[in-house]
Amino acid sequence: MNALLGFSRAIDGMNRVIGLIVMYSVFVLMGILLWSSISKTFFLPSLWTLETAQFAMVAYYMLGGPYALLSGGHVRMDLFYGEWSLRRKATIDVITVLFLIFYLVVLLYGALGSTAYSLGYWGKAPLEFFAGLITGTEEVGRLERSSTAWRPYIWPIKATMIFGLFLMLLQALSELIKDVARATGRMEPEART
């Protein structure tokens, strides 16, 4: 258990740092949108602003999601939950966080498949494709482009989403570990790592 708690602390630390960096990308978003209005008023509107802003937003909430999870930002319905003791909360969470983890795994699997497609893989086994890419038995094929006139490649944003979902999954595991520790009295119920 101590090893697990150590792991959890490491994850928390990492996601905290990432969150505190990613939170500033809201100004990147703001900058893009402001540039969009300036360029439109004074020059020709740019081709890339809307899509770039969309990419920035996706990166923002995907990479920032784990930090929100860590800091308890994702709301819960607390009709009953709010009344329970901290220990009881942790006990129930141990079970229900597994559902959250399941959801994240499905998302991550979908992201892997979609990213494999964006790298030109048409098959049904994205994991094997990525493994093959590493071992050199698979090759990158036709790269997916956005169906806009600007036509950026799509894989970078999809890869970012994989990374964000992976961090999110790690954070959910860390929450699970902490919930187990709290439920079994190995950690103070209200303690945060």
């Binding site: 994702h74 709301v75 939950y81 129930i92 229900t96 959250l100 959801y103 499905v106 998302l107």
Partner: peptide, 17 residues
């Protein structure tokens, strides 16, 4: 799922998945 107090997005997403 919502009544268990799990995070709202997790509850909805899990059922969807």
């Amino acid at each position: 799922m919502l009544f268990t107090g799990q995070r709202v997005f997790g509850a909805i997403g899990a059922i969807a998945a």
